[in-house]
Write a protein that binds this DNA or RNA. Structure first.
Lengths: 379, 379
DNA sequence: CCTCATTCGTTCAATGCTTGAACTTAGTCT
DNA sequence: AGACTAAGTTCAAGCATTGAACGAATGAGG
């Protein structure tokens, strides 16, 4: 700590609260002062360098009511942006996100990544990112993979075995000359529901089924990753201790009853689209397969809620598409098994974000860090 | 925010880090400066009012080595203390705790609280506290009950039904003219392993079996209580979705297989003491009952670890006493079911704290708050 | 016994951030 | 045109930390 670092910390903290207020919505200096509890004088001070460096713009005066008209500040439309990329078994997706939370570009390309090597994967991702971002100034990139990540290293990816142990973030960073942050797809899908906009409160679980089942847990407005990145492994919650053996070595894991592969097999379908059609046409075998999965998922979620005590579950990914045929069974198991008392309620929502949730969350990782550590904006 | 509140926050934050360093161990101003990263000048400033108000004392100079001898600072032995009380089905316990982490007094009295009313319970607790504390200056009291607490209100206490909805903290506070904080016994037993001394790291779960099974979850050095106080309800984690019905309305809850009442029944014993004797004399029925419970508990804990990703489980209360006959089965289920990868390890420990863990944790609630919000020390 | 080296603790001017009040600017309302 | 209102700026004051200088208290060595 040098002489005046304490003072600098105060300033950075205030800068952060101002930026958070601006993510919420644009506002004049006076408005921001009222919203943050700081004074107009401080707001003038804090925003000056942000305007000078092109992070913010001052809009033309708004003529509304009496008094001197205000000149609202907002994130500069040509300011720096973040990019997020998702590597998955069967596709790649990227999305660019402005500091204001607006999506600028998206791209999703089918691609069989199952046997690919690290450098093949990274080459394709880097190329896709270059196509999408063009010459814009980038704050950084977020990278999502279906697997467990700890300290920037891929620890476990049952479905992309070629990538275990790879320093993916570093590799992509070198290719693009950018800061890259790597995280689990479940965590990032959850983050997309928290940042830049609160879609499900500050405490919730986001559940998806792709090849496995992954849950992203948000506690107190932060994604909870656990000590080693293994938190939220809902797929391996046990619901029948002597049940079906699982590839993980355990028995009776939720994944073996509510995984997408299980649903499709039981329904006698090969694709999610075909399953949806069967459901829409009232096929009883399909309906039963989905309901059975919902029951198993509901038991696992009840256990999760008895441990985490969050009020909200968000069904995302494939589950969101099956929501109308799935949620009754899930809700019923949860109602019967989650401990009740006081004012406690549980909500079950379908994600509104669709297939770009993960890539958007990956980009959100970057914009969020930029806001929370504003010194990065000036670097 | 008034004019210089920001600066005041900086000072209070520094005061907190100094007090934390002192809880760790006493030290001279120069030593504390080195440990906290602050300067000697600041330390002189910060400690001056603490010495003046009798929170700290300056010990006589220590003659060790060259240079001017240092005068170590420590918490004043006659300074203010905290008291913690545990209300349980069959006993009351209290403990007084100094800011330095030393236990001053303890008292445990058998008492059947099952049918007691709020005021009967509080009268007895208040009397016990008065006996134990005498005329010492009290920082406050912590109160533990076997049940779910939210916003200072008892929401659920299956075993002390007379207390649901009672403002216990307020009632005890009035009787003793003190600040009283109410919390769940599982959370407080866990806190006792975190504060004032780290006995199991900063991330762990502490599990006890009394009438039910309760887990106190510590994440990142903080007790995690969840949105409504229901977090860590390990007893109602499902291990067999079509298993034994539970009083909670669900089926196959861990509690129905690993609860103390189940162990005793299966072992054909009436008390924990008698069970211990049977185990010591090699009774196979008792051993099997404990092992079966251990398997069920292990399945539940495996699920918990796949969700929370903490590296350590502490067995406390009755489980600590059964540790040697229980842990092999628990560990074996955990090894087989917790997702592995990277550097991940899991530890299973027996609590060293014994029957005062909960009361000590309740007192710790108060000393911890005093240290983390040092402004309270001067009020 | 006296001097030097060493470490502890205190004193003090400097730093830089927020603040409230006063002030300037730029509109509306009558 | 003059009063009124609200936005934004300027400025002296206040304050916690800091580093450097200083005073204090002891051990080592001659």
């Amino acid at each position: 700590m040098t002489t005046v670092d304490h003072l600098r910390q105060v300033r950075l903290g205030n800068l952060r609260t101002v930026l958070l207020a601006l993510v919420d919505r644009p506002g004049s200096r006076a408005d921001l002062a009222a919203r943050t509890g700081l004074t107009k004088a401080t707001l003038g001070n804090l925003t000056e360098p942000l305007l000078a460096s092109g992070i913010l713009v001052e809009e033309p005066a708004t003529l509304a009511g009496m008094g001197r008209p205000s000149k609202p500040l907002r994130f500069h439309p040509d300011g720096p942006v973040a990019v997020g990329a998702e590597i998955n078994v069967s596709h790649l997706a990227v999305e660019t996100l402005g500091l204001d939370g607006e999506t600028l570009e998206r791209r999703l390309v089918p691609a069989d990544m199952r046997g690919a090597t690290e450098s093949e994967v990274l080459d394709r991702v880097a190329e896709l990112i270059r196509e999408v971002t063009g010459p814009r100034k980038l704050l950084g990139a977020g990278l999502a993979i279906p697997g467990v990540v700890h300290d920037g290293i891929v620890i476990r990816t049952p479905n992309l075995p070629g990538l275990v142990g790879s320093p993916l973030a570093e590799g992509l960073g070198r290719r693009l000359d950018l800061d890259v942050e790597l995280d689990n797809e479940a965590n990032l899908a959850a983050l997309a529901h928290l940042w830049p906009h609160h879609l499900a409160g500050e405490d919730f679980v986001h559940v998806t089924a792709d090849v496995g089942i992954g849950a992203g847990v948000v506690l107190n407005g932060e994604v909870y990753r656990g000590v080693s990145g293994f938190a939220g492994e809902l797929g391996h919650v046990v619901i029948e201790r002597n049940g079906v053996p699982c590839t993980c070595g355990s028995r009776g894991c939720v994944e073996r009853y509510a995984g997408l592969d299980v649903i499709l097999r039981e329904a006698g379908r090969r694709t999610l689209n075909s399953l949806r059609k069967a459901l829409d046409s009232g096929d009883p075998k399909a309906a039963r397969a989905v309901r059975d999965a919902g029951e198993a998922l509901g038991v696992g979620l009840a256990t999760l809620m008895n441990l985490f005590d969050v009020p909200t579950v968000v069904l995302g990914g494939s589950y969101a598409l099956l929501h109308d045929h799935l949620s009754a069974a899930v809700q019923s198991e949860m109602d019967g098994r989650v401990l009740a008392g006081g004012e406690r309620h549980t909500r079950l929502l379908a994600s509104p974000l669709g297939e770009f949730a993960v890539a958007r969350g990956a980009a959100g990782l970057v914009t969020r860090r930029a806001v929370q550590q504003p010194e990065r904006l000036f670097a």
